[in-house]
């Protein structure tokens, strides 16, 4: 095999740009900060990003369907607050959690109904629910922090299963399930038809409206779970939870190779995306660099990773053909 051919084969690997960047950062960190690869730090690294990670699973489905969901940034604190209120009113842990998740699901249902009925772009529908929910959260809490969680509730954010923190364990289980389902299950596969060519989906007899309801409700429930975990972690809940989290979640999904125009992507890419942001996040914790540098580095890394991905992608496509515009535009 000539060098050139070898290069071609290597570039066939998906997400190579991202993978390279991640590996380089890990190596760099491991050399200068040996603590970086210690079990404790890896746990910190995971826990620092587990909410985003859980939500990114649902968001992957949403974006493959050519949709988007901004409202999760409202659902997450909403569910945290609600679970707190229910617990304070002695509903019991199971009932409180179920009720909070039910309310979260309701938000997803409203989103889906707006998208299906009004035929308005999901960005706008979910932006509207986000703004509304933020308001609702403020109205409910009057801007104050909800406290008074019973100790038994601490498990969801702080407990351990097989020695692994519960949130990470939960994420791992869900990630495996999602990967497998999305790849192989008939029901989940519909998402590629809906995102890839909605007419094709319709003509094939896919019930699009019902599927849209399914994924938006699912996504909201995941955000609700993330909210409950956060509440349990901090033993409190307030409206400040989840500010900007929607952008972080969307970012990890997109740098993982899911295209905003829909029809393309998988959970594996998303997991890499999560890893990428979690590592950058953790780098700052480790290096003790001033936090305001964090954003600059984070932004630059983002640009570098996608740039590499594109550059390698262009090599993969071979010469001559520029990437079609519609493949990456919104």
């Amino acid at each position: 095999m000539s060098l050139n051919e070898k290069f071609r084969t290597i570039t066939k690997v998906k997400n190579l740009g991202l993978l390279t960047t991640i590996v380089l950062i890990i190596i760099g960190m491991a050399i200068f900060f040996p603590r970086f690869l210690s079990p404790i730090n890896i746990e910190i690294l995971g826990m620092g990003f587990v909410q985003e990670a859980i939500m990114a699973l649902g968001m992957t489905l949403i974006i493959i369907s050519a949709g988007i969901d901004l409202s999760i940034a409202g659902v997450m604190p909403f569910s945290a607050i609600m679970v707190g209120i229910f617990l304070n009113n002695n509903f019991g842990i199971t009932v409180s959690i179920l009720l909070a998740l039910l309310l979260s699901a309701l938000v997803g249902f409203v989103n889906a109904q707006m998208i299906n009925r009004l035929k308005v772009h999901p960005f706008i529908c979910t932006l509207a629910t986000l703004t509304t929910l933020r308001g609702v959260n403020l109205v409910i809490t009057k801007g104050e922090t909800v406290t008074g969680f019973p100790p038994a509730f601490y498990f969801f954010g702080q407990g351990r299963v097989f020695g692994i923190p519960f949130p990470i364990f939960l994420f791992a289980v869900m990630a495996i399930a999602f990967t497998y389902l999305l790849k192989n299950h008939k029901y989940f596969q519909q998402v590629y038809f809906i995102g890839g060519n909605i007419n094709s989906a319709r003509y094939s007899g896919i019930n699009i409206d019902r599927f849209i309801i399914f994924i938006y409700v699912l996504n909201s429930i995941l955000a609700g779970i993330a909210g409950i975990i956060t509440a349990s972690q901090y033993i409190s809940a307030n409206t400040g939870f989840g500010i900007g989290i929607e952008l972080r979640v969307i970012t990890v999904v997109i740098i993982g190779g899911v295209s905003l125009s829909g029809g393309k992507g998988n959970i594996g890419g998303t997991i890499l995306g999560i890893l990428f942001l979690a590592i950058i996040n953790n780098t700052f914790v480790q290096t003790g660099a001033p936090t305001y540098w964090q954003e600059v580095v984070y932004g630059s890394m983002l640009l570098i990773a996608v740039f590499l991905e594109e550059y390698i992608g262009a090599k993969r496509e071979g010469t001559g053909v520029l990437k079609r515009w519609r493949e990456f535009m919104l």
């Binding site: 964090q294 954003e295 996608v306």
Partner: peptide, 23 residues
Amino acid sequence: KFRINPFIVTLGMMAIARGLSVI
């Protein structure tokens, strides 16, 4: 020119510019 998703690019810029302002 590089044909990279506008959402990602401007999100990166958003972080960089805000960070630089603080710095």
